[in-house]
């Protein structure tokens, strides 16, 4: 975990983790205009237990229809932060937070927000592909069936739409009724993306979505992400520097539960302001 940068990272030699500048995809300008902000995390503290604080004073802005990467060594709190965005941490007993997270102006932790309803708008893709032990079709239809009364025809259309969005339709259109667990790992992960897209979320959270995949499958997911950001705001946790460089527009570096530095990906990788960031992206610790 600490020194490898993931299976997706074929191009980078060990020890020289700083990705080649050419690999950085984004041309995101440095300052972020207030009207571009989709997610605004304000002074967030998070505790797993009374005396187990996991996040300290997080202030972060994620631009709309862009990809924000959260990077940092294992246990730095990047997954915890991601899970604050759809209040998934609340499923664990004893967790507590302070501060605010605004999604398009609404405080996610406000009293009027129901976490169940929130998760319809903030989709999530997990580290390990986790399709339900149901058919391909039923996996994609799952969220739709929960929230909407659709006719069979409408449902068919939405399932096809989501699978096409996830670049999976051509591969599975003839076996929609087969068990989803029979698909390859990469296909399963794209199915999970299709499942999340089907309910048309505003935000898509991705928790190391490629860490269990081979380079080809990883490439497909990354291509997909770049296309999907036209419609959704994406926040991705990744332990791969080069993945962050390839896909993200902005990068946030976390260390020991604190946000060390955040900014346009190009700036973070080429001219980090903090020594810690410099050390991390050049592979001196991890």
């Amino acid at each position: 975990m600490s020194t490898t940068t993931g299976s997706s990272d074929g191009a980078t030699a060990p020890g020289a983790r700083r990705p080649p500048t050419a690999a950085i995809h984004s041309t995101e300008p440095l300052p972020l205009q207030p009207e571009e902000v989709a997610i605004h995390i304000q002074d967030l503290q998070f505790y797993y237990d009374q005396d187990a604080q996991a996040l300290w004073d997080i202030d972060l802005e994620c631009p709309r229809h862009r990809i924000t990467a959260l990077i940092g060594p294992s246990g730095c709190g990047k997954s915890t932060l991601l899970r604050c965005l759809n209040r998934m941490n609340e499923l664990i007993d004893g967790t507590r937070y302070e501060g605010h997270i605004f999604l398009e102006g609404t405080d996610l932790y406000g009293t009027e927000v129901d976490p169940v309803a929130l998760r319809r708008h903030v989709g999530m893709v997990f580290q390990k592909p986790n399709p339900f032990p149901k058919s391909v079709y039923e996996n994609v239809a799952y969220g739709l069936r929960l929230h909407q009364k659709l006719t069979k025809k409408e449902l068919d259309e939405r399932v096809q739409w989501a699978l096409e969005k996830a670049h999976l339709w051509d591969e599975v259109k003839d076996r929609l009724d087969d068990a989803a667990t029979g698909l390859s790992g990469g296909q399963q992960q794209r199915l999970c993306i299709a499942r999340a897209l089907a309910v048309e979320p505003k935000v898509l959270l991705m928790d190391e979505p490629c860490s269990a995949l081979d380079p080809v499958a990883t490439q497909k997911i990354e291509d997909l992400m770049l296309e999907l950001k036209k419609d959704v705001t994406i926040v991705i946790v990744t332990h791969s520097m080069s993945q962050a460089a390839r896909v993200s527009d902005r990068t946030a570096f976390l260390y020991k539960g604190k946000l060390i530095e955040a900014g346009p990906t190009r700036q973070i990788f080429e001219a980090p302001r903090e020594d810690l960031t410099e050390q991390y992206i050049t592979g001196r610790f991890g």
Binding site: N86, M88, L91, V116, A117, L118, R119, R120, G123, M124, F126, N130, P131, F132, Y142, G143, L146, H147, C192, R195, A196, V199
Partner: peptide, 8 residues
């Protein structure tokens, strides 16, 4: 988690 994540 997959199910909760879809708003179930």
């Amino acid at each position: 988690e997959a199910s909760f994540g879809l708003g179930a």
